[in-house]
């Protein structure tokens, strides 16, 4: 008799896995459409990634290698605890290296290193319905998707332009998938939207509290909504990463003191570490500080 409480492989019971698996297959067959699923209570609170965790639990096998990121970082609380959860309940190998992972569960970033065929990116989604803040009733948003009635979303983007002179939506920027469904890419910065387009990796989205699963298969058109005279643009940064000098990556601002001092560093910690291991140095990387002391 074992003294350690034992769980089924990957925590969920088999009937729950079958239910989630059926929803995932429908989601893949109807790209961008939100498939309802009977989301379960998980041993972590809503907002902690219960949707992504259930999707990962339904697909993961003993030969998978799991990477979990939170805002691009492998070492923040959410990422560490979910990685530890699957290491415990599924006994799978984990990694922080994007290239080594077969499943990458993410909260609000897509890794900078281009994903490969065979990799699966699992997004944790808080609000799956892109039209929710425009129309609170699920019965109505369902109809709007069915009728392909997305005028309201363009009005919202237009109001941005009228108020701010530009589209001010910077994250959860709505996309159209394969010319049919408007989809919320989850609160990733719009910087990551172009990476979703024709990605060789399978992208699965799980919203636990809202009980929805949706998907973008590999090599699928994902187009950010825009206007002819206000085309979609990603964020641009005026300086490189202060640690690894990378340009063309998404940067986080880090406050250094209470006199307005700040630095910009890579949001993707794995990418930053790999670049520093290759010898790239930014103007605030440790070696230079030590040399100056």
């Amino acid at each position: 008799m074992s003294l350690i409480p034992s769980y089924n492989f990957a925590y969920l019971d088999e009937q729950t896995k079958r239910m989630i698996r059926r929803s995932i297959l429908k989601a893949i067959a109807i790209p961008g459409y939100q498939v309802p699923f009977a989301s379960r209570e998980m041993p972590m609170p809503y907002g902690w990634g219960t949707g992504g965790v259930q999707v990962t639990a339904a697909i993961i096998g003993p030969s998978d290698v799991l990477k979990v990121i939170d805002q691009g970082a492998d070492d923040t609380t959410n990422a560490v605890s979910i990685r530890a959860f699957f290491a415990k309940v599924a006994n799978v190998a984990t990694t922080t290296h994007t290239a080594d992972a077969t499943i990458i569960q993410t909260r609000h970033r897509i890794p900078e290193r281009p994903l490969q065929a065979g990799q699966v990116l699992v997004y944790q989604v808080p609000i799956p319905e892109p039209l929710r803040f425009l129309e609170p009733r699920e019965t109505e948003t369902r109809k709007m998707h069915a009728l392909e009635e997305y005028g309201l979303m363009h009005v919202k983007l237009y109001e941005d332009i009228a108020k701010h002179g530009q589209i001010a939506t910077t994250y959860a920027y709505p996309v159209k998938v394969e010319g049919r469904y408007v989809m919320d890419p989850s609160p990733t910065p719009k910087f990551d939207n172009p990476k979703m387009h024709m990605s060789p990796a399978l992208q699965l989205f799980g919203a636990g509290r809202e009980m929805r699963i949706y998907a973008v298969p590999p090599f699928t058109e994902v187009v950010s909504l825009d206007f002819e005279d206000h085309p979609f643009e990603i964020q641009h940064f005026t300086q490189p990463c202060a640690l690894c000098a990378a340009t063309g990556v998404y940067l986080d601002e880090v406050i250094l003191d209470d006199h307005g001092g700040h630095m910009f560093v890579c949001s993707d910690t794995d990418n930053c570490e790999e670049r520093r291991a290759q010898g790239h140095r930014g103007h605030l990387s440790g070696e230079e500080l030590e040399a100056a002391e």
């Binding site: 089924n8 492989f9 896995k17 698996r21 297959l25 893949i28 096998g61």
Partner: peptide, 19 residues
């Protein structure tokens, strides 16, 4: 081995429909 074989079977079906 129902747990592992169902997982293998599902990944085959998922990969088949995704590709």
């Amino acid at each position: 081995d129902p747990v592992m074989q169902a997982q293998q079977g599902f990944r085959a079906l998922m990969d088949a429909l995704a590709n």
